[in-house]
């Protein structure tokens, strides 16, 4: 698992598919999530593009695409039950999966120890 400075986690699955979610730390800081808007499957995304809208009781935030690729699956369960994001942010409550051409960008992201140091 890799981590971004935007508090996303990325996990490679099936060779060229990257699963994206938000970290426990992010979920805790956000507070209770009440709304999630996901991209459509088939959308091509580029790094740093806003792909998900997430709203908590406190505020609206975006999730940025951490990598270039095509959205191949989204976690529809979060739309019906946004509170799941708080229950299991680093497991069941992933947001979307992106099929990527070039996985090398993963090397730019932090490992768990580096992320823990980053959030202090």
């Amino acid at each position: 698992m890799k981590f971004t400075e935007e508090h996303e986690w990325l996990r490679v699955e099936d060779g060229d598919v990257v699963v994206v979610g938000i970290t426990e730390h992010a979920a805790e800081q956000l507070g209770d999530v009440v709304f999630v808007e996901l991209p459509e499957v088939g959308t091509t995304v580029t790094k740093d593009e806003e792909v998900v809208v997430i709203e908590s009781v406190k505020a609206a935030s975006d999730i940025l695409a951490p990598i270039d690729g095509e959205v191949v699956e989204v976690n529809e369960a979060l739309v019906d039950e946004p509170g799941k994001v708080n229950d299991d942010p680093e497991g069941e409550s992933w947001f979307f999966k992106v099929k990527v051409e070039d996985l090398s960008v993963m090397d730019d992201y932090m490992d768990e120890a580096a992320y823990k140091a980053f959030i202090g």
């Binding site: 508090h7 938000i22 730390h25 800081q29 956000l30 507070g31 998900v52």
Partner: peptide
């Protein structure tokens, strides 16, 4: 994601 860590500052 944008803003999560910033929430307290915001």
């Amino acid at each position: 994601m944008r803003d999560a860590r910033c929430a307290p500052r915001t």
